[in-house]
């Protein structure tokens, strides 16, 4: 049993549980909004199917872990958590910070900082390349989109209409 738990792909299980929880919550919210057929005609069967599939996938994942070659080392030992594996997660967090900073900082400054931080995160160490590329590319992109957009885009330095 202990080996099964170690071999289990916990990341996948948590992911499926989250999808199941979201589907169940959404079904509940839709029923609370209106229990009429017109409202639930697609949502109820789709949510039920999603929940069933989540159960099936979790069951299959547990079964795969239980029937895996007993001599195989547990998953955690086979795939150690390295910086290379964590880099996409760090990048997603960085991208989230960029999106959050767009309005308070201005699209131009936020874009400079995001590009510079992304370059550092992915291994660039030459300061002049980091600063130069971030400022030139970020400014050009913001300026071009500013020209095309029919509504204002907040910026701090780059002038846009």
């Amino acid at each position: 049993m202990g080996n099964v738990l170690k071999r289990l792909d916990w990341g996948h299980v948590v992911f499926v549980v989250c999808i199941a929880a979201l589907s169940a919550w959404y079904l509940g919210d839709a029923i609370a909004a209106s229990p009429r057929v017109e409202n639930l005609i697609l949502i109820a069967p789709a949510a039920a199917l999603a929940l069933g599939l989540c159960a099936l996938i979790i069951g299959r994942t547990v079964y795969d872990a239980a029937t895996a070659d007993a001599s195989a080392s547990p998953r955690a030992e086979r795939t150690p958590l390295t910086w290379s594996r964590m880099r996409p997660v760090a990048f997603i967090v960085l991208f989230g910070l960029y999106v959050a900073a767009l309005e308070p900082m201005g699209f131009d400054v936020a874009s400079w900082l995001f590009i510079a931080a992304a370059l550092v995160l992915t291994g660039e160490r030459r300061i002049w390349v980091i600063v130069g590329y971030a400022v030139v590319f970020g400014s050009l992109a913001v300026w071009l989109f500013g020209l095309m957009m029919p509504y204002p885009m907040p910026t701090l330095v780059v002038p846009v209409q």
Partner: peptide, 20 residues
């Protein structure tokens, strides 16, 4: 390392242009 942030910035600006 240059391509990824550049395309992400373009995607972000494009999405802002779409939704306003």
């Amino acid at each position: 390392r240059f391509l990824v942030p550049s395309v992400l910035v373009l995607s972000t600006l494009g999405a802002y242009a779409l939704e306003g």
